[in-house]
Computed example of a mutant assay.
Amino acid sequence: MAATQTLLLLPLLLASAWAQCPAPADLKNADGSKICAQLYTDSSPYYAQCCGGSVLQVQPGDDVPYLTLAWINRVSSLVVAPRCELNVWSRLGKEGYTRKFNSGIVYRLEELKKGLFGNWDNSISAYYCKCA
């Protein structure tokens, strides 16, 4: 009987292990100060499983014209805090296509057009984030 109950609970345990995007208002540092945005390397066809993989916390006022090799062109989903704005560029040095993200969740950057044929999945190379 115990083995059957364990097997029945397994899908629930796995579901809780999947990533889920935080609410924009929940973006806070350990000391309670605001995080401007969080960038994630993974997304999923299922919105409830987006915002997974590695996490990059972007602080208010961060101005990064050159992402590190670990992050360049790897962002697949993001969350921006209330009263904040994340500006991104598709090429290093704040060149190429640009886009502004206001407060909210972008589950799948591949759903946002970039140019005529592209999308924003794995396309962010630089960013600037500010909060009011």
Rank of each mutant, 00 (worst) to 15 (best):
M1L: 04
A2L: 03
A3M: 09
T4Q: 03
L7K: 08
L8V: 05
P11D: 07
L13W: 07
L14P: 11
L14T: 06
A15F: 02
Q20G: 00
Q20V: 00
Q20W: 01
A23Y: 08
P24Y: 03
P24S: 06
A30G: 01
A30T: 04
D31W: 03
S33Y: 02
S33T: 09
I35M: 08
Q38S: 09
S44C: 03
Q49Y: 15
C51N: 12
L56C: 03
Q57H: 11
P60E: 08
G61E: 03
P65C: 15
Y66F: 15
Y66M: 12
L67V: 13
L69Q: 14
A70S: 15
W71P: 11
S76A: 14
P82F: 15
R83P: 07
E85Y: 08
L86P: 14
N87C: 07
V88Q: 09
V88F: 12
S90H: 10
R91P: 00
R91C: 05
G93W: 07
G93V: 10
K94E: 11
E95W: 10
Y97K: 03
T98D: 06
K100D: 06
F101E: 04
N102G: 13
G104V: 02
G104Q: 02
I105W: 01
I105V: 15
V106W: 03
Y107G: 06
R108H: 01
R108M: 07
L109V: 11
E110S: 09
K113Y: 02
F117N: 08
G118D: 04
N119Q: 01
W120K: 04
W120C: 03
D121I: 05
S123Y: 05
I124H: 01
S125L: 10
Y127N: 02
Y127V: 01
Y128S: 08
